[in-house]
Write a protein that binds this DNA or RNA. Structure first.
Lengths: 253, 253
DNA sequence: TATCTCATCCAAAATGGTCGAACATTTAAT
DNA sequence: ATTAAATGTTCGACCATTTTGGATGAGATA
């Protein structure tokens, strides 16, 4: 199993440079050199090289991250089959419910938000495409965990831990496994205040041919999701949408 | 001026690996090695290293590009002030006109699409956030060129050429400069079939404090944009939207 | 003009990337 | 089951490449 070789210091450094460029919102060799504690000339070579790749641009003396990241990220998103199958359905769901509608997939044991749609009454959550959060701290992620083997869940917990994010976050392995058990039985998950105070979430897993493809969810104020009737309504709409997506995924447009 | 050093072979190679991973939609060391004509062991080290950066993930033996690209790209987009100032206004414009509404910025002499909004009757153009196209082949790009010095325009033409994309593309420097002259005078640009056959575009430059920030545009079928009255209507709405954006950019929310 | 600061270039020194070969593991074939 | 082929992974020694201090030049500041 994991945990071994990771050489290529120069490659790792080049990504460190990218991180610093992000943090400083652009910089020259000197700033990079100071921030990373390397000689100026070294910083310069890295910037030159990154520029030659197109991921960094030099606008009159100032090096900045280019939009190659956005381009590659968007292409990856649009090529993703589950996104293709979901897009229009999610738009409709957001319009109907007025809430925040999300599509996540699992990657390296974490939840990646592939797409976010906002309805009229949607709350602002600071979500954006590509952001990753833990799987255990919200309904959508729990539905994904609920489809994985217990070994796999243990592996993910080992890798990422069960840190408390709010006072309501589940931080106990046994409690989480119990919760996942009931999610598995119900086919959906609901929770609130576990990832962000005041945010309630509902999620259902997208399963095609017994293969987990991702999860769609709705996020809204905790108070709203606590209402049994509203919860049921959202759940029904989520399930309808899920059905639409599953069919489109299997049989194309 | 430019054109010299480009060392860091290993860093450049690591981005070649990324390109190959995109093209092959994921691959193992052997495939990478064959595609790039390098030893398997070398390919392996690169993949391991890229994995350690988080930009590549290994899902049971298969290495794939991760959503770190999407995350970084989205963060860059959302941090961009002109995007922040434009977002809601563009949504409204797309809803009102029903067409494809775009926000572009200049980067390294090319047009980068920062955002695309689609209305009800929008045509499908295969656009996505981050995609880059030339500046001279569509109205929005021309409005950007029209605000640059002639030296700058020459420099851009030298760097990227004036290749013909469709039969209508302007491929002659003098013709382009003339066109830019009239765009500068009018404060907007209209053209059709120059980037994509059947697509007509209208654009206006976003200028704040005499500084060019980008350009907003509308894309629709050529036939529609050829109608004088419709063209005028779109132009008026574009100008209104531009005004809204400019004010928001200067004075915040 | 003189004095900074900073980006860029250069060439010597040693670190670390490269690559062949061996090992481990999975897949396919017999 | 057993064998063979293919692929992922590890290892170590050589030498190409990265690294780095110092030189150069451009641009800003006083």
């Amino acid at each position: 199993m994991s945990g071994s070789t990771s050489p290529m210091k120069s490659v790792q450094r080049s990504f460190d440079v990218i991180d610093v460029l992000w943090e400083l919102d652009g910089a020259g060799p000197t700033e990079i050199a100071e921030e990373m504690d390397i000689p100026r000339s070294t910083a310069h070579v890295y910037l030159q090289t990154l520029q030659s790749t197109g991921y960094v641009v030099n606008t009159d003396g100032r090096y900045e991250l280019s939009h190659a990241f956005l381009a590659m990220g968007s292409r990856l998103k649009h090529r993703n089959q589950i996104y293709q199958a979901s897009q229009t359905a999610l738009e409709e769901l957001a319009a109907e419910t007025g809430e925040v509608v999300t599509l996540i997939v699992e990657e390296a044991g974490r939840a990646v938000f592939l797409h976010i749609e906002r309805g009229e009454t949607a709350i602002e959550l600071g979500l954006y495409s590509g952001i990753t959060i833990p799987l255990y701290s919200h309904a959508s992620g729990k539905t994904i965990l609920s489809t994985l083997s217990e070994d796999r869940v243990d592996e993910i917990i080992d890798r990422h831990g069960l840190d408390s994010i709010t006072s309501e976050t589940i931080t106990d392995r046994a409690t989480l496994l119990e919760k996942l058990e009931s999610v598995r039985a119900d086919g959906y998950a609901v929770d609130w205040d576990q990832q962000i105070e005041g945010m309630g979430t509902i999620g259902v897993p997208i399963v095609v041919d017994e293969q987990l493809k991702g999860s769609i969810g709705i996020a809204c104020p905790t108070e709203r999701v606590k209402s049994e009737s509203y919860q049921t309504e959202l759940l029904n709409r989520l399930r309808e949408t899920n059905e639409t997506i599953t069919i489109k995924y299997q049989y194309g447009t």
